[in-house]
Simulated assay, not measured.
Amino acid sequence: MDFRRVIVVDLSALGVGEAKDANEFNSVGADMLGHIANKVGGHFKLPTLSKLGLGNIRFGDPILGIAPVDVPIGYFGKVQMASKGSDFNSGLREMFDYQSDVRITSSIDSVVYNGKGINKSIVISNYDSYIFNQDLATILPANSDVRAFRELHQQASSSGSGLIYMRTLGIQECCRQADIEGCAKSLRYMDQQLAELINELHSTDLLLVTSSYANDPTFSTTPTREYLPLIAYVPSNPDGKSLGIRRSFADVAATIADIFHLGASPKFLRSSFLGELA
């Protein structure tokens, strides 16, 4: 696929069940999405994410109200973080950093540096030291999800090439406060916004919906060690299939490096899923 732009929507704190190494992080039994769905009840629905394949990630262990669909429009899978770090930014670094011939560097800056003056990297987020240290990125500060999605819709509707990263705030804030109803409300809002975003995409866009970490609000451990969702939507080919279990978030960095020809070193032994999006 010949993509000109990659849009990453980070639904921070969204997890889809305990990871295989959950016992090393006091997270046995953690299930952010499953516990919210069970506590809110059967009226909890996320229609856009369901169509994209969110429920298919948990085939055989369905989430209440988010069942697998027969024909998902997105490519779906889940990520087992490779990093043993337990801070909130471990997944973010793993998602964007890659090994070049010279050093470990961020694909956010490299997309611009190697883009011959054409590509841009646009970051829509509240303050974060990792994100705001990207020297070549255009930073659009957003301290609420309403503002963040407003910026995202504006950027997505315009033409251009490069990378857009947006991180949500509402889910993570509600999880930290153990506000189950607030989590459900935030997830419904994200779902509605994603429906609008899909209609704004260009045929050469790639949309990635994921979460850089999980935080089960029913657990005292924060963050919780869970599998993280990975959904890819290709406007020109809305015929999804499974991406399986990715063994590292670096598969996202490898895919971005593939799309924008960033020249990842052979030592960067991660699996791009670009070839699976066909």
Rank of each mutant, 00 (worst) to 15 (best):
F3P: 01
R4E: 12
R4A: 04
R5K: 12
R5F: 01
L11I: 12
L11E: 06
G17R: 05
K20D: 15
D21C: 09
V28R: 11
L33H: 05
H35W: 06
A37K: 09
G42Q: 15
K45T: 11
P47S: 08
K51F: 07
L52R: 05
L54R: 09
N56S: 04
R58P: 02
F59R: 15
G60A: 08
I66D: 02
I66T: 03
A67G: 14
P72H: 06
G74A: 04
G74W: 03
G77R: 01
K78T: 07
V79R: 01
V79I: 12
M81S: 13
K84E: 15
D87H: 08
F88G: 08
R93T: 05
T105P: 07
S106Y: 10
S107Y: 05
S107A: 11
V111R: 02
K116G: 11
I118H: 00
I124T: 02
S125P: 03
Y130E: 00
A137P: 02
A137V: 07
A137D: 04
A137E: 09
A142E: 00
D145Q: 03
R147V: 07
A148M: 03
E151R: 00
E151H: 00
S161I: 07
S161H: 13
I164E: 00
G170F: 05
A178C: 12
I180Y: 08
L187E: 05
R188V: 11
L197I: 04
D205H: 00
N215D: 12
P217V: 07
F219Y: 07
T224H: 04
R225Q: 08
L228S: 10
A232R: 06
A232K: 03
P235H: 13
N237R: 10
G240F: 01
A253M: 07
I259Y: 01
L262I: 08
A264F: 01
P266C: 04
K267I: 10
L269T: 13
R270E: 14
S271D: 15
E276R: 11
A278E: 15
